[in-house]
Structure formats: structure tokens, C-alpha cells
């Protein structure tokens, strides 16, 4: 059962600040990412035709090479013109393109509801997720969503139908980031060879998430980590206050000017370690600051910015029979 709204949430509702972005923002985002392609980091294996290079070679119109006819090949694939010219039988080979299912895992726990008045991290996460969903949908990739919050997980299976991006956006708008919940179980039951984009601040079960992501990648999948960071976390206010973890009220630390330097150092070291651990697994890691436009983050994720650590997957092709 969903928990009743807190006074803070009611305040935001009264101010008209929804948990998601406004339609105007979404429109501007979609306009900004029009034409962006999100190619798969490695050849995919899929039956449906799509935009991504397939690991299979089939009878696609686009010619890639010829091969000597061998017993057992489909005679229909013999290039008769070449046979007439060369008096040898060759088979036409072409690269197939396939789709790749894309699953967006969005963290909607209490740590994402920061700053508490503007919900900057949550809004940024929603925009990045919607942007990636739009980019994937443009390539006719099935797009799905898993939202993890204190109320549990809400799933939208990957679909290619029209309007799926709108459904995802509405699903995100209906969510209020609250509570605490592990993120790793969201990737349970993921089929291999699926592309997963995790939009989170990774302040929860980061190790478990990374481990599960590595399993997905090892099984042939593709995992992108989008680390959402608020400007106020990178540069906290200079006043003295008692900092309390929104997901763990017992974790309270005095934040005084003398402790500020230590905090910045520790936080930076943790981010560096997190990035290094993800990249060491061959996973994609991207930092998304709240103040950064979501379109730029989407381009960086989709385009594979430098330092993402994408491992060059071996170009293994398996012929179809």
C-alpha cells in the first residue's frame, strides 16, 4: 500500500512542482535529441530487423560478400549472374541488422528526491530516461522500464508500439521518489543480450548492482550506468547543519566548515572508485549532473563518450544456416 503523502510532497504539489518534468521540457528534450542514434556496443543477436549490427549473416538486401557455394547451402542464394560470368557458384552474403531490447532501470528511492524542494536529481533522472527511451524507440528497439522506489518496483515490459515513450514518461511522472529499496533485484530475470541503462545515484546497493550488471554483460548484454549527482552534493552549502541521510535517519553527521574539505575529498574518491569499478567490468559509466542538460547526457550515453570504458567486443560472427 502506498504511503500517504508527506507534508513536503504536498508542498510541492501545491507549488505545482510535479515529480516529473513538464511537457514543455519534454518537448524541448525530444527536439534536442532528434537524430541521435544509440548503436549497440556489440553485435546483437536478434530475429527482428533493426538498426543494430547483427551477429548473424543472412539474406539482407545489403550485400556484404560472396562465398563459394557448398553443399547444403540454399540454392536460392546462388548469384546466377556471377555464375554465368565466372562459371562458378557463389552465394551472396549480407549483414543482418536487428533490434536490441532496452530496459531502463530508474532509481526512485528517497536519495533521488534531492534537493527536497526541487527534486532536481529525480527530474534529471526522468529526463535522461525518457531521452534514452526516445532514442532507442527511434531505432525501433523495444523499450521497457523498471522503477524502483520504497513502494516497490513497477515494471513496463519492453515494447515497440507507438506511444511507448509517452507511457514511460507518464509512468515516471506518477512516481514519487521515497523510501528505500535495493536496486539489484530490478535486474533479476533479465534476458541475456539486452541493453540496460541504470539511472541512479548509486548510494544504495551499488556493489550488488555492479555485480549484477557484470553478469548481464558477461551473458552478452550491455549495461550503461548513468550516475546522477546533484550540484548541492558536489558543492554543499557553507553553513553549519546536521546532515541526515534521507533513507537512513540514524545516519546524521555534523556538517561544519571544518568538515567540508574532508567531505569533498571522500565523495570525490568514492565517485572515482565507482567509475573505475564499473569500467573495469567493461561497463559504461556516465556522470549526469543535475545542472547539465539531459540532452547532452543522452548524447554522451548514446554516442559513447570518451572514458566510458566500452570494451571493444570481438567481432564474432556466426553464419546462419
Amino acid at each position: 500500500m502506498r504511503e500517504p503523502r508527506t507534508a513536503r510532497e504536498e508542498e510541492r504539489q501545491r507549488r505545482g512542482e510535479g515529480e516529473g518534468s513538464s511537457p514543455e521540457t519534454r518537448s524541448a528534450l525530444l527536439d534536442a535529441i532528434r537524430g541521435v542514434k544509440w548503436p549497440a556496443l556489440r553485435p546483437v543477436v536478434g530475429a527482428l530487423p533493426g538498426a543494430h549490427h547483427s551477429r548473424l549473416r543472412g539474406a539482407a538486401p545489403e550485400l556484404s560478400e560472396y562465398r563459394v557455394y557448398r553443399q547444403g547451402d540454399d540454392p536460392k542464394r546462388i548469384d546466377w549472374k556471377l555464375l554465368a560470368r565466372s562459371d562458378r557458384a557463389y552465394i551472396r552474403l549480407a549483414e543482418d541488422r536487428s533490434t536490441v531490447s532496452t530496459l531502463l532501470v530508474v532509481d526512485a528511492t528517497a536519495s533521488m528526491a534531492y534537493p527536497d524542494l526541487t527534486l532536481g536529481k529525480w527530474k534529471a533522472a526522468c529526463e535522461v530516461a525518457v531521452g534514452l527511451a526516445a532514442v532507442a524507440h527511434t531505432s525501433r528497439d523495444p523499450v521497457g522500464l523498471v522503477v524502483v522506489s520504497g513502494d516497490g518496483m513497477r515494471r513496463l515490459p519492453p515494447r515497440t508500439r507507438r506511444g511507448i515513450v509517452g507511457e514511460l514518461a507518464r509512468a515516471l511522472d506518477d512516481v514519487t521518489p521515497r523510501g528505500s529499496h535495493a536496486l539489484a533485484p530490478a535486474m533479476s530475470g533479465i534476458r541475456s543480450r539486452i541493453r540496460v541503462a541504470i539511472v541512479s545515484d548509486f548510494l544504495g546497493d551499488a556493489e550488488d548492482v555492479r555485480r549484477r550488471a557484470g553478469e548481464v554483460a558477461a551473458a552478452g548484454g550491455e549495461v550503461h550506468a548513468i550516475h546522477v549527482v546533484a550540484d548541492e552534493e558536489l558543492d554543499p552549502p557553507a553553513r553549519s547543519f546536521l546532515a541526515v541521510d534521507p533513507e537512513d535517519a540514524s545516519l546524521a553527521r555534523p556538517f561544519v566548515p571544518e568538515a567540508r574539505a574532508a567531505y569533498l575529498e571522500r565523495f570525490a574518491a568514492w565517485r572515482t572508485e565507482l567509475a573505475a569499478s564499473w569500467r573495469a567490468e567493461g561497463l559504461s559509466y556516465t556522470v549526469a549532473r543535475v545542472s547539465e542538460p539531459a540532452s547532452r547526457v543522452v548524447r554522451r550515453v548514446a554516442g559513447g563518450a570518451l572514458g566510458t570504458g566500452r570494451a571493444a567486443a570481438p567481432d564474432v560472427r556466426r553464419e546462419t544456416r
Binding site: A110, S111, M112, Y114, D116, K121, D201, L203, A230, E232, E233, P236, S240, F241, L242, A243, V244, D245, P246, E247, L251, A252, R253, P254, F255, V256, A259, A262, Y263, R266, F267, W270
Partner: peptide, 14 residues
Amino acid sequence: RPPTSLLPTARFAP
């Protein structure tokens, strides 16, 4: 006692 304020990265403060 100082005023309380939420900070998700509070764990990194000494």
C-alpha cells in the same frame, strides 16, 4: 544543535 538538513551523501561527512 545545528539545524537538520537532508543530504543523501551525508555518509561522506566525517
